[in-house]
Each structure stands twice: as C-alpha cells, then as structure tokens.
Design a protein around this nucleic acid. Sequence first.
DNA 1: AATAGCTATTCCTTTTTGGACTACCCTTCG
DNA 2: CGAAGGGTAGTCCAAAAAGGAATAGCTATT
Lengths: 329, 329
Amino acid sequence: MAGNRLPPSTTGLRVFLAVARLGSTAKAAVAVNLTQSAVSKQIQALEEHLGTTLFERTPQGLKLTEAGSIYNPYAEAAIEQMERGARRLSERAAQGRPIRLHMIAIAGERWLMERFPVFAQAHPEIDVQFTNFVSEEETEEPDIDIGHQSGPLPGRESHYLFGRQVALVAAPSLLERMGGLQRPADIQKMTLLQHFQMPTFWAEFTETHGLRGAVPAHTVRYGYYSVIIRAAMAGLGVALAPRCYVAEELASGALINPLGLGFESATGCWLTFSPNTEHRPGFEALVAWLREEAAIFEAATLAKAANDASAVAAGTPPVPRQARRGSAS
Amino acid sequence: MAGNRLPPSTTGLRVFLAVARLGSTAKAAVAVNLTQSAVSKQIQALEEHLGTTLFERTPQGLKLTEAGSIYNPYAEAAIEQMERGARRLSERAAQGRPIRLHMIAIAGERWLMERFPVFAQAHPEIDVQFTNFVSEEETEEPDIDIGHQSGPLPGRESHYLFGRQVALVAAPSLLERMGGLQRPADIQKMTLLQHFQMPTFWAEFTETHGLRGAVPAHTVRYGYYSVIIRAAMAGLGVALAPRCYVAEELASGALINPLGLGFESATGCWLTFSPNTEHRPGFEALVAWLREEAAIFEAATLAKAANDASAVAAGTPPVPRQARRGSAS
DNA sequence: AATAGCTATTCCTTTTTGGACTACCCTTCG
DNA sequence: CGAAGGGTAGTCCAAAAAGGAATAGCTATT
C-alpha cells in the first residue's frame, strides 16, 4: 500500500453504507437522494477502486461479501469522523451567536412576545434571535423549534407546551343569522374555517361529538391562525381553533363557543431541539423558562375551559371577562 | 447538524492535511500532485462546505486557524480509516496470490536465478513471482524489492545483501593498448563506463585513491550492468562495478583488476519490504533464505577480493580460477 | 400471463474539477 | 531603489466525472 494511493470518494462511501444497510440499490437511492442508476455506478466505482467485490448481486438485491463486511466498519468510521469534525466546528461556531428560536406566528402573537421582555430583562446576557421560515433565504437551523405536531419527533428532544384544547368558535352575529346552533349536528350547515396544518381537527371533532361522516356545508382553508380568527370574527364561518389562541376573543364576546363544543386534540404546540448539540450558556435557562411560561399559559386556558363548561351546564352564558393583558396584535 | 448533511470530498481532506502540514498551497500542491491553483480552490471549497475559515493567509503561506486545528485530527482520522479499510482488503487479497519479488536484472543474472531452484524444490508450496518495472503496465507493488540503494529506506524494513565492494576492471587488451595502468592517476586517460544509477561511484573512487578532482578522458553511461560488463570486456573502457557482478570475468581473466584498485561503496544491493503488511505463509521463509544466500554470495566475493589483494601485494598477478558454475548470461 | 421488484448498462446532458495563465502581495538581496 | 523569488487568489476553458432517463434482462409472486 504505497503512500500515493488515493482515498475513495465520500459519495461512494455514503452509498456503500446505505446499500449495505438496506440491501438494495433501489432503496439506497431513495436514502441518499440519487437514482438507482447512480447508486449502481458508485458501487461499481468503489469496487474498482478497492480492487475487490463488495456485494453479491441477487435478484432480490445486494448482499455484502466477506470483503464488504470487512470494509463496512472502516467506511462507517471514516464518515463518522468527518461528521464529528464538522459537528465540532458547527458547535464551536454556535457558541458565539444568538440562540435561534423558531416559532410559529400564532404562538408568538398570543403567547411569547408579550411575555419575553420579562425573560430578557432577567437575563440580559442571553441573546435570542426569533426566526421563522417565511423567507426561503433562511437556511440556518434553529436551536429551538416551537411548532405544531402530534407528538415527539424521532431524534429530537420534544416537550409539549400547550394548544391541545380545541374549541368550535363563531361570531354571535353568524350564529344569529344561521338560526343558532342547538346541537352539534347543526354545524353541517356552516362554513368551516380550517388551518392547512391541522388536517385532523375535523375528524377529531366529529369523532368526539358522534358526527362521523358529517360534512360541513363549505370548507375554507387558511395558512395562518390570525387570519382564521379574523375571518371567524367577521362572521365568515365557524372555526376549530386551540382555545389558547382565541382566549381574548372568547373573553370579550367577539367569538363564542356554542354549547361548549370542543375536544382534546392529538396535535398541540411543542418545543423541540436536537439532543446531540452541546448547549450554550443560557440555553437550558431559556428552555426551562419557556416551559414554565407555557405551563402557566396552558393552566389558564384549562381553567377558562372548565369555567365555560360549568356555565354551559348551568344554562347561563359565559361571563365576559376583562382582558388580562393589553394585546398588541 | 441535520442528518442530510453531505460529507466533504476526500480530495478536499487530503489537500487540507497537506497544507496544514506544509504551510503552503504551493508545497502542498507538489505533495498531492495537483497545481497550486487547484489546491487553493479545494481549500476554499472545504471552508465553504464547513462554513468556517480553516487557514489564515499570510504572505509566507497558510497557517491553521483555531477552527482548522480543531478539524485537523478528524480529517486525519477519516483518511486513516479509509486507508485501514483499503489495506485490510489489500492484505486479504494478497493471501491468495504469489509473493511478488521485484529484483534488478543484474542481481537475478549473477546471483538469484541460478540459486532459486534449490529454494523452489525445498518449498513447492511457496509461489513466487519475479517482476521488474520494464513494462509500464506493471502497477502492482511487489511484496519484496531487491535493488541498489545507499542505506535503509524510511518506512520500509531494509536488509543489506551484497555489492558494496566495487572494483575497477578492464580488459587486458585495453590496458596493453593504453600502455598499462601503473598508478591510480593513469585512469584519467581512460574512458569510464558508468552506470546511471550509481552516480557516486566515481566520486567514491577518487576519494579513496587520492584523486580528488580527477576527470576521466571520457565517460559513457549505461543503464544495465550486463551491458557495461560486455563493453568492458570488448575493451571500450574501464568500469567501476561491484565485484560480485564481475567475479566470473575476473576468474577467467576476461577482465582484470589492475593494481587491485577498488573501494567500499555506500551503495549496495538491499532487500526491502513494507513492515505494515501482514505476511503470508512462506514470506518469512523466503526472506530468510534470500538473506542467507546473499551472505554466502557476499562472503565468497570478500574472500576473492582478499585473495586478489594479497597477490597484488606480493607482486604476482592474480591467479585465474576455474569458473565455479556455468554462466547462463 | 401479467405484475412488481430487482439489477446493470447505454446514451447524453450537466456539473465539477483542475490546469494554464494572470494579477497582486510580501520579503530578500544587490 | 529595482529585481528576483516566494506566496496567494481569481478567470477562462477543456476535460473528466457525475448523474438521470430510458432500457434490457432476471426473479418472484399472483
């Protein structure tokens, strides 16, 4: 083995490991984002480079030869070392920059933005940068991600924050116009205002209220909750929205929750981050604070929901409350 | 660090390590067999890939940044793992093939070829393949290399065999034509027959005989000793040749060693092999045998040289001897 | 027989790579 | 001071490499 022998291509190594793991060029092609043809060629090139056959070809796919099995851990180790090196640099670079917190718009509007100044004042040394993916230019991965999902994400550390209490809400004027809503099934004569990212809400609602197979008169979909809430307030339809996002409108009477209709959804708002990343000073403090504030927010929502539920049971309409804090939205 | 991040190119890693070691794209270019321009681009591509600066640029060259220093051992380890894997496969493949023994032609002609049948008969299970680099097609590295060098090679296990006793030899007819050679300085009126690969012989000869600065009338260079010996025997000039290669001609009187002129050279014939390679069955036996036969060959040469030296001191010409074995050259 | 899954191969386009050349900077020396 | 020698990065372009679309052939299953 003379010193002038060139190493294999890293694409070849990546492809080799994928084929070894999945036992098929077709499946590996999907895993590494190449075509089967390119995968086949990469394997052949690697075999030629190393001067030995790495896979037996069968009609069912590829199986490691003995030589391939010998080489496998070395290829893995090489790729692992590169990843470690890159990760070390990435983490080192992260030390000197703000903690990137990505968050869906509605959570910012209704929850965090009015609370964050308290944290910022208590921790002036912790630099936090809020991001979202509205712009395609944004390619940096956030350190913390706050968004809607229906459970923990594999490979990520995930914490539930709030938002699983979903309510059917509508403007009083709409209900008057439509003859009110005397029972759950009356919703079928309504226009439903739905969020693109919450496709399960309708199914969950019908399941909870024994309306399986029921279809609303119309469905209109939006990408932002702030828009849905405005549409609902304008009387364009009924909306299924997390209670915490419509707490103020319910309190002021701009929106009401007829018959206390609602359900507990599988989908809520979660905080996630990568567990492999060494965390900077302040990261843990920020996560802890966010979770604490979310718990307070969620408790307030649950308390209000319980209060509304008992008022409905007593046959009295919910009592409008004073806004708890000034709203900037 | 998302899972879909691609590893760097291996060329980039190789170049990075070379620049880190040599501190200059120009020097690294030589080391990795690329131009300085290509090296510069590879470094830039790697820096862009990793998202950080790896070198500070100065007028005197490139110096690792802190980030570069952090990355260095990872790059090294990755390349090392690839080399290990390839080596393992290479060694495994070597188990099933002949031991490749490369040897310069003259050593084969005058030493090994007539002795090897004895070894082959004693070890029929050891398959040996003789190679040389006359053909450019020959790209496989030999397991054992026998050639001329002036000492051990770094990174190789090296054993001296024979050939450091060098003699000045000429045909009797030439000496008669040129009025004999009464003292060492008379060589300056001769034509010197020299071997391309032994450029130090003339300097060593003049040093030994107090002829510093002396220049022969003519110098003719050849690439093969068998040709030099033939030219000397034909009277075309005097030759400086290892005694072991002209033993038969000296014994028969076809060539003589006037005044016993000669010297012990720094250059001789050595056996080398890579110490990193796991050795196949028979490898050790073959090396041991080769060294033993070389020792015998060298001892015979030294004995003859000593015999000739004492004859010269006594003023009698060397006694021509019967050829010890039939010569096939 | 039809279908679905697999493989390698050919043809061709696109992308990447690396060399030749150049401009610019610095250091040293006469 | 200018010349020489060492270094760097950048531009232009040709060659090499990479990868996709399409295809042929094989097998296993229904």
